[in-house]
Design a protein around this nucleic acid. Sequence first.
DNA 1: GTCTATATATCGATAGAC
DNA 2: GTCTATCGATATATAGAC
Lengths: 201, 201
Amino acid sequence: MPQAPSQVRSATADEIRQAALQQFAQSGYDASSMRDIAASVGIKAASLYNHFDSKEKILWDLTRSAMSDLAANRDAALAQLDPAAGPRARLAAFVSAHVGFHAERRHQAVLVNSQLGSLSPSHHRKAIALRDAYENSLRAIIDAGVTTGEFVISDAQVTTLAILQMGTGVSVWFRPDGRLRSDQVGAEYVKLAALITRGIA
Amino acid sequence: MPQAPSQVRSATADEIRQAALQQFAQSGYDASSMRDIAASVGIKAASLYNHFDSKEKILWDLTRSAMSDLAANRDAALAQLDPAAGPRARLAAFVSAHVGFHAERRHQAVLVNSQLGSLSPSHHRKAIALRDAYENSLRAIIDAGVTTGEFVISDAQVTTLAILQMGTGVSVWFRPDGRLRSDQVGAEYVKLAALITRGIA
DNA sequence: GTCTATATATCGATAGAC
DNA sequence: GTCTATCGATATATAGAC
């Protein structure tokens, strides 16, 4: 069965996605023009509308993909664990995946963390729902660790947000040619998350 | 000696500052128009130019004030300590001030954390320098604690950024009518920072 | 699917009357 | 210091030729 027309991915459409992601993440959605995006693909602005209905549709396409990739990255990390793995192993896997994504896929991370406000109201609601689900998946790990007594924390919601946001911040300063590789940065944040949850052997 | 003309603060200019801060923080600099800012002050866009040379000058005025307030807030907290206070007390004071600012002055915090890219190159450089100085003031506390042996950490730079960014994230979710008051949130983050630096008695 | 040309809207900023 | 009127640039998006 062939793909539905709306899901066909032409080479040009992918070039547009790449160019738009780069510009939206670097300069912001409002400061990026269709002309500039088209120029970096090597076509004219009007031709963009053969691939996307509007500028906002490009942003939504990129946002949905980024949030989907973020969740898939988390799922892949958790799936590698022993099914009987406890909260501490699950927390480490989550943080490692979270930080790795925010280091290695900075543009997607920055888009999700700073450009949701430019989405249409309808798309914005859907993005917020996806973000809440992602946050809740960490919250569930935290709560499980509290229940088993492996985690000793003061406030589950603050702890959840603190772990998430310190990892999100990696997308602001990480550079591929920096002092630490992304896996090293991930390992550092795994340690921090363990300390926050009193995982100090 | 009277104030220099450039520092005169008229009531109207302050209303403009307040309206622009609200809009820049809420919708972003590029999505905010001079017409909208003027309308929320009750005047026309052209009249704004009697108080500020350009839209970017408003942003710079607000940015400089916000970063100055942030540093002053930190200095006030540290100044209340006993001069002989050690790194752990200094860290707690810094985090408490940092989180308190990001909770209680959300608009200023969001501006500094998301709109620096809209500044002119010259102003952008100055803002980055101020941000670096702020980060370095926390880094110095961390380093001092490592030197005395009170802090046991894995990577000083990662630790510094993690503490800063988890506190910065408070400006994203804090609500004055939420479950926790800003001082309670600050106390939670002081605990988290202590744990990260192995301050678990 | 690309292009040129253009419609329509809004932007920051200025000129000049009051 | 406010206003009306407007300039010039740029924005998204569309129409229609090729």
